[in-house]
């Protein structure tokens, strides 16, 4: 009897050890991947997925730098953060041969400035950051950043801006027509003055509340991500998403292979899974952004397919990524942001 129990225990241990190899640790944004898709991956591959979440690119970077590197296999940084993480040596590389789905990547997203040739990352979702306006409150033309930075009387005191240095300063620079990374004293002073003046007509700074304040009517206009604006509209807010003529921020979230990944092979399987059009479309249907994978159209829901937030008008201006400044220049922008919020 005793021997039988021992054997059973030993077998159980072996089973557990064999099982333990089939895991994957994902470090991901909150509410950015439907649970059904995770379950589907586990059903197809037998790999058990653990997901930890973060709420900003910077929080994720801080946590990896503080010692979490080596615990996660993949993370989902935004464009500029991919470049920063590569510069910090936090990313592993792969070859296209290791990913059968590599060919599914939309060609316009293969040779991206933040990871030329896609050596460490694959596209997840992309979208834009501009602003949405309550059409019951303001009826004029909305396609200018002036609505946020030099607002008409109807919107003054009713504007929410994202509590995010990168987006506010990038959009402000586009409004003034100056580069995103400049050392020029006069340009920086002009940016500072413009923002301080604009702040007088802003009601609040908030990123995770950006959608709610538009739905509740606390804000009549607000800087917002396009998918978030689509959700606000779906929840009944009479808002329209703007494509400002001065430009707007384009961003792309990417699945990266982390350095010292404990389950590198499984990480590649996961990335390949996300490159399959049906799976990429499932994320898009959930998050209301746009996939970076070709062939997703047949799997998209009608609401997402026709949403004005992801289908810019033909004459819309081009958006740009947030630029990554060098250390000396970044210091100046940090000072501008601190000065704006002091």
């Amino acid at each position: 009897m005793n021997r039988l129990m021992l054997t059973t225990a030993a077998l159980a241990l072996i089973g557990a050890a064999a099982h333990a190899e089939e895991t994957l640790s994902v470090y991901h944004w909150f509410e950015y991947m439907p649970q059904e898709l995770v379950d589907k991956f586990t059903a197809e591959t037998g790999i058990k997925v653990t997901i930890d979440t973060y709420d900003s690119n910077e929080a994720m970077l801080a946590s990896l730098k503080a010692g979490k590197l080596g615990q996660y296999d993949v993370a989902v940084p935004g464009d500029y953060m991919v470049q920063i993480m590569a510069g910090e040596g936090l990313l592993d590389t792969f070859t296209p041969e290791e990913l059968p789905g590599y060919a599914n990547i939309d060609p316009q997203w293969v040779d991206v400035p933040f990871d030329p040739g896609r050596k460490s990352s694959i596209p997840y979702q992309w979208g834009s950051t501009a602003f949405a306006v309550n059409r019951d409150v303001f009826k004029g033309d909305i396609n200018s950043l002036g609505l946020i930075f030099d607002p008409p009387p109807e919107l003054q005191g009713k504007i929410n801006v994202l509590d995010s240095q990168g987006e506010v300063l990038a959009l402000g620079s586009m409004y003034l027509g100056i580069p995103q990374c400049t050392n020029d004293k006069e340009q920086l002073k002009a940016l500072m003055e413009m923002l301080l003046k604009a702040k007088a007509s802003w009601a609040s700074f908030g990123s995770d509340t950006a959608k709610d304040v538009l739905v509740s009517g606390d804000a009549a206009a607000g800087m917002i991500y396009n998918g978030f604006a689509a959700k606000a509209r779906a929840e009944g807010a009479p808002v329209e998403y703007a494509y400002p003529k001065e430009g707007y921020v384009v961003w792309m979230d990417n699945v990266v292979l982390l350095k010292d990944a404990p389950n590198r092979a499984n990480a590649l399987k996961f990335m390949d899974f996300l490159l399959q059009p049906e799976n990429a479309a499932a994320v898009t249907n959930y998050a209301a952004y746009t996939s970076g994978v070709m062939g997703v159209e047949p799997f998209l829901s009608d609401a997402v397919k026709s949403s004005p937030e992801t289908n810019p008008p033909a004459d819309a201006a081009k958006g740009s990524f947030i630029a990554v400044c060098d250390e000396e220049t970044q210091k100046l922008y940090d000072a501008v942001w601190t000065n704006l919020k002091k």
């Binding site: 929080a59 801080a62 995010s164 240095q165 919020k341």
Partner: peptide, 16 residues
């Protein structure tokens, strides 16, 4: 709209 001590500290660790 303005930093408080708590949000000033938070910004140094969790944000940009």
């Amino acid at each position: 709209k303005n930093f408080m001590i708590g949000s000033l500290i938070e910004e140094q660790f969790k944000k940009s």
